[in-house]
Write a protein that binds this DNA or RNA. Structure first.
Lengths: 200, 200
DNA sequence: TGTACATCAGTGAACGCGCGTTCACTGATGTAC
DNA sequence: TGTACATCAGTGAACGCGCGTTCACTGATGTAC
């Protein structure tokens, strides 16, 4: 089968996105090449016409996941400082906690990324900086760099809270933790808010 | 070889502790039984005289790790509210970041635990509650339950911060994140503090 | 316009390897006499 | 006290299986004439 030049690119992207989902669901170590390719509607052999190794895909998928997260934030939250509370409430929602394959790659993969190769950690670092620079620009449009570390701290806090909420077997405690996390995140970011609004 | 009854218990404990370290270093999926047993100075076959399955060991090791974390906190920090700042500064130190095999099991394993079997998640939940109830008791000795969620939120925040600091390739940014994390944790816990003390 | 050929994305079987688990066996020690 | 035996923690080879990776092959399409 021979296709136009855009076909291979589209297939590659399909593999990357399917892999991102699968990694977030089953972990990187827990996702085999055959499974990833089946997810993308292909057989295992085709993998190496798109990537040089599993590591190569991992780095690419991690990067893609963070770009997607950034795009989601831009698309779904009101611009500027006003959108910050939306971002926090959406991130620390029960819905996000209960659907990790569609969610934040950091919350799903952070401690596995620590053990990955340098290119993957580099891709992760670059991707996170893109996301948090977006947040910093909302916090202080005139001087985003001055609040970069603050944004990074808030991102770390939100990821840790979501992870812990996912790991607890006590559902009520997990829900309380999310509420506490929203409160904490808004406090750390210095965003005004009512005590709690039930939807979004 | 036949030994006294305390011998098998001691061997079992040796496997559990070696496994805890190895899991934190290479991940649960990334640690094979043979490696774990070699770490403990034994051969793979002996594993099943101590545990019914790898899952069984994982749940046991997770529980043991959190008990050890709790014991470390009790042993190394001043009692009561006074020790809270020590706990935070020690947790979010460059030393802790750079030696994950000796460190916090939550920071090393949180998103892998999410994917584990229920007994492991239950062991994790129980263990975390033990640790955070200790923190809650320091925060409000007269009514620890009232600050349980607050303590849980602070724990989640610290774990997420340590994880992110470990995953970043930019060392300077990782260091700044730890500083920010200390600031954030002390703020969330309502602990007074100077701007930054270089050691401890 | 019709035909022969080159391209190359994708197939599917196979590779060596390490996984979790099983099991027949070993041999140092505690116990019985 | 000395000897024969029972115990059982630990050994090490083997099991089927899925891993990451390789490779000879297929066959639909674009291109050349």
């Amino acid at each position: 089968m021979r296709y136009g030049k855009e076909h291979k690119q589209a297939t590659r992207q399909r593999i990357i996105e399917a892999a991102g989902r699968r990694f977030k669901r089953d972990g990187i170590d827990g996702s085999g090449i055959s499974t990833l390719m089946t997810d993308a509607g292909l057989t295992n052999g085709a993998f190496y016409t798109h990537f040089t190794s599993k590591d190569d895909l991992v780095a690419t998928a991690v990067s893609d996941q963070l770009q997607a997260q950034n795009a989601r934030i831009v698309a779904q939250a009101a611009p500027g400082r006003a959108g910050l509370e939306q971002i926090v409430r959406r991130y620390l929602s029960a819905q996000h906690r209960d659907s990790s394959d569609d969610g934040c790659p950091s919350a799903a993969l952070l401690d596995e990324i620590r053990r990955c190769t340098d290119p993957t950690k580099q891709a992760y670092t670059d991707g996170v900086l893109m996301v948090i620079d977006g947040i910093a620009a909302r916090l202080a449009p005139d001087d985003p760099l001055s609040v970069r570390t603050k944004a990074l701290g808030a991102y770390a806090m939100m990821a840790g809270t979501l992870q812990l909420s996912r790991a607890l077997t006590d559902r009520q405690l997990a829900d309380e933790l999310l509420e506490q996390g929203i409160h904490n995140a808004l406090a750390l970011l210095g965003v005004e808010h009512g005590h709690s609004s039930p939807a979004m």
